[in-house]
Nucleic acid binder design. Sequence first.
DNA 1: TCTTTTATAGCACACTCCTGCTACATCGTG
DNA 2: CACGATGTAGCAGGAGTGTGCTATAAAAGA
Lengths: 208, 208
Amino acid sequence: MPKFVDPAHRREVIADAVFDIVLSHGFSRVSLRAIAEETGLAIGSIRHYFTTAEGIVRFALETLVERVSSRLEERLEALLPALESGTLSSDEAKARTADFLAELLPLDGVRRRESVVWLAFEEEARTQPDLADVFETSVRGTRALMARTLENMDRRGVLRADLDLELEADSLAALIDGLTLRSTLHPDVLTPDRAKVVLSAHLEGLRG
Amino acid sequence: MPKFVDPAHRREVIADAVFDIVLSHGFSRVSLRAIAEETGLAIGSIRHYFTTAEGIVRFALETLVERVSSRLEERLEALLPALESGTLSSDEAKARTADFLAELLPLDGVRRRESVVWLAFEEEARTQPDLADVFETSVRGTRALMARTLENMDRRGVLRADLDLELEADSLAALIDGLTLRSTLHPDVLTPDRAKVVLSAHLEGLRG
DNA sequence: TCTTTTATAGCACACTCCTGCTACATCGTG
DNA sequence: CACGATGTAGCAGGAGTGTGCTATAAAAGA
């Protein structure tokens, strides 16, 4: 067996196996044996990259957060220049902003998968302090992102004048979380597409 | 040892033990042994009331749903006559409606406990079809409750005329779910009191 | 008093789990 | 060639799990 293996890639493969298991069987079914079966590796091999089972979960969560937040930042960096340039019509700018926030909704397979796993880890982190701090920063981050987005809209003068931006930030963050929760865990009751319509309508309601 | 034991009460005690364990250590720590320690009963005694471990979890969920929904109905039956009577001012009626919907937020110890356990079961139900159907009806129920509440407000003429009530029902349901999620799992980021303020403001925004 | 029902209690078995070790193969390097 | 580093593999132990089964205690009815 070869020696030239990229350890970072191996860890990612293992993290993906964790995601698959969480997705199809739930967090409680994640075990070294399940990961071994999922990846085709032997338990001993996995333990070569992670000394403890706890470490695997921890790493998987960090991987998840990193993927989501980096994709979000990517979209943000594509959005901001377009908005600042001033070449967009008001309607276009609003639609772009809505699309950006909709990035957090489970609108395709990738995001649905991430949403499911995210929720599973979020619940798990409640009683596992080791994981909790990762979410702490993340949840505050989305809250801050909402505030920034609203401030940006406000500077462009597209918001009603009577709005409490801090309040609207909490509201928007909660709405998106709720839309994600419902369309992820109960897609029959609220389809992801419907969730996006609701989000767009909410933003529309903030317009001045 | 006596024979006169109320079996229904025993089952409730066991269900409460399940809630306590979920609350303090997470769903994965629920086991016959843990329940036995929590209740002071022997495993054999518990198994006298529940043949299977799965059945305990199932019963606990049904107990939870029953408690929450019955308390909600209770409040609804107290609210409706007051609204229909027409003796309330518009502001009072709005405040009462907001209070009613806020019943779903973790504003006191009891509701916080229920919210935490609810979320834990909701996540668990995703991969456990046995539990899923219980939520199916429940989630549709809250959605329907939002629609009913909005229709009621609309009949009283306190809503803006341009609203899509079905859309607002989805929006309201998602907002409440999101507020509950955040103020339950991340109370440092969104306090329950703040969640109620956000909810009230949202309802205020629907006013015509 | 004898029998039946209800309740409590716990043993034993077959699982699954993580982890400390050890064994072995492969490759790069001295 | 030989040696150390890297990767793969798996055994064995101790802990934890649900469940079938049996044993015993107490109350109720004959």
